[in-house]
Design a protein around this nucleic acid. Structure first.
Lengths: 151, 151
DNA sequence: TCCATATAGATGCAATTGCATCGATAGGGA
DNA sequence: TCCCTATCGATGCAATTGCATCTATATGGA
């Protein structure tokens, strides 16, 4: 059986993507840490819950949105709840599940994280590429997404 | 004091980059796991050591190349050594340090990982973008790198 | 030479992650 | 109704990571 082998350009682009994405995450996490704020994953969850509004979200709905494993979502939610940033509500029509809703202090935390996170994004990406280049980049990345959606 | 805020296009491109890079890593790690092979980080180290040749590398030289923290490199090398994939040699002119060299079975492991990893790269990236698009992507990513090298 | 400081690498301990599995409810067919 | 299987979410335990610190050697200046 034959093995598929990537072209040199593919390997180069792959390497860049791996390295750059890790650098960007790392730098952003460092800034959050320096500001005494929780990690990016907390923001992701708070963001999704804020978008979802008062209805909240079921934990399993969070899984695909934040790209975390089920057990990680379960435990992250436990930490967020312990910190009073989200609340869990029993859901009437499914005795197994629950609905998770962001609290006011969760919204406040989200704002505080965004102050740093947004600045980091602007700094590391917005300041380095033109609007046109950003569109190009987003378009190319879209073609690598899991469900090869057109968008 | 004013907070810098990213443009919508910046946020969109950032989101794509975060999500896509994580998906690609995850899928690749899954394939390696399914093949009973060690994680990507092992490949990275073995690759750097293979490139370095017989002279090997000092652990601190690996740190920047593989983007791992010092203690992670230290422990990863311990695991690789335990598996006989690398060997540590005392270095004559610096009593604190050591030189790490890849062993034959380390090279063999590198080949085995590449069979899967390379196919994954081809599959997830090479098959989805043209050579021209790959160049464009690599070029855009280059501008986001840490030392904003021109390349 | 002697000391102060810097650098290389390892490690104890706590937190997080991964893996496997569990308990509980849903849902669907016989 | 009664199973059988699928889904939701949690959790015990092992592996890994992060953080702080440690030991040992190097280096440079007094």
């Amino acid at each position: 059986m034959t093995k598929k082998s990537p072209s040199p350009e593919t390997v180069k682009a792959w390497g860049r993507l791996m390295r750059v994405s890790r650098q960007l995450v790392e730098k952003t996490e460092d800034r959050l840490k320096a500001a005494g704020l929780p990690p990016l994953a907390w923001y992701d969850v708070l963001h999704e819950l804020a978008e979802a509004g008062e209805g909240g979200l079921r934990p399993f709905e969070l899984i695909d949105r934040v790209l975390l494993a089920q057990y990680n979502v379960s435990r992250l939610l436990a930490r967020l709840e312990a910190d009073g940033l989200v609340e869990k509500l029993p859901v009437s029509d499914d005795g197994r599940g629950q609905t998770v809703r962001i609290t006011p202090s969760g919204r406040e935390m989200r704002r505080r994280i965004w102050a740093i996170y947004g600045a980091s994004i602007a700094d590391l990406m917005g300041d380095r590429l033109s609007a046109k280049d950003l569109e190009t980049l987003a378009g190319l990345l879209a073609r690598l997404r899991d469900p090869p959606t057109s968008d």
